[in-house]
Design a protein around this nucleic acid. Structure first.
Lengths: 197, 197
DNA sequence: CCACGTCGTTAACAAAAGATAAGAAATGTC
DNA sequence: GACATTTCTTATCTTTTGTTAACGACGTGG
């Protein structure tokens, strides 16, 4: 059921847990595999599941007033996903979370997770590492919007997410960068032309 | 020294601390007041101070390759500021943090803070509330970049930061929104014209 | 093997944003 | 109150982006 690799993965996002701590956590969690196109979370629901992606790739997207899907985030192996509307605001999710590949997850309801953490001090202490890591990534991403041009933002994305680049359609990457797919295509062309000279 | 109002302020950003917990924290912290224009943190240093803004307003800015100052964030009463380069990456700060008004703070070095928290479980447990709140704000801000146009982003800023609007020059707000001051001026004009009709 | 849908690119046009500079308005200082 | 400084606005021009639509490449499933 619970193998060594799984334990190591959890370690990789946490701080200083031991075998028994992680076992605690995994025993409380369920496992679920999603096929390409299936939904981990649907919008307008109060699904408060937190997923740990063991293998695979998901996109988080919202639908705007015009009916366009806007992908706000891509997450893959060893990352957590949840709808922060539900977790943080107790409100229906504005976001869909959809598997882009066959995606294997561990999952647990947020309030159950809280209870497990409350019963195990070590796990609760570890929460800070996870939150800090999420925060670090969020701050970095915000800075790409304030300090970088779309072109620089794209190059930065390629550097920091080399693995994602060829796993998802460019149109999703464009959305994540805050631009349109057409615009990203032009940016790519400009970069290619610069590279020639 | 430590008055009731101060305690309440700390409560406001934390979860369930009691008087003695907060006293613990404040005793370890120093107090410092910065005049308009003075720096809480300077770039290219390893100042790992964390500041709680008791009164006043600061901006966080970086200087790009061309020498332009780009303001990435504005923070005021009851908020925390620090350079995440130093705190999270142990690297010299790319950012300056500068008082925009006379600003009164409590401050503590990050590693000292860690020690204080480790010695007081209740305080350490409370860290999650603070981190979650920062994370919530960061996610919301990211979504304004992916889901909103600059105009919508500006309107959203006015709604969520009504107090800031008249306390800082628009050019800083423009930077925070990821656009130039000239462009913000045009957006304001467009909004005003719509309002007429 | 073909029909179909998806995706990336390109084109053409409109709209918005960046860069630069100049002038007006506001703010602060003595 | 007069002056200097900063900030905001406006104008002009260039560049980039958004929008829409068309085309071709690619892959999937029948």
């Amino acid at each position: 059921m619970i193998d060594l690799d799984q334990i190591k993965r959890i370690y990789s996002i946490a701080g200083d847990l031991n075998f028994s701590d992680v076992k605690h956590l995994l025993q409380a969690a369920g496992r679920k595999t999603f096929l390409h196109g299936e939904y981990l979370i649907e919008a307008d629901t109060l699904q408060n599941q937190v997923y740990f992606i063991y293998k695979g790739l998901v996109r988080i997207y919202a639908v705007n007033e015009r009916g366009d899907e806007i992908t706000t985030e891509l997450r893959c192996e060893n990352e957590l996903v949840a709808s922060y509307d539900v977790i943080f605001f107790d409100q229906p999710s504005r976001f869909y979370i959809q598997a882009m590949e066959k995606t294997e997850t561990f999952h647990i309801a947020y309030d159950e997770l809280q209870q497990v953490l409350e019963r195990n001090r070590k796990l609760d202490m570890n929460r800070k590492y996870i939150l800090q890591n999420l925060l670090k990534n969020a701050f970095e991403r915000i800075d790409t919007f304030t300090l970088k041009t779309p072109e620089e933002r794209y190059l930065h994305f390629l550097e920091s997410n080399p693995s994602l680049t060829n796993r998802v359609p460019d149109k999703y990457i464009a959305n994540v960068l805050g631009i349109t797919p057409v615009s990203l295509s032009r940016i790519r062309k400009r970069i290619a032309q610069k590279a020639k000279s």
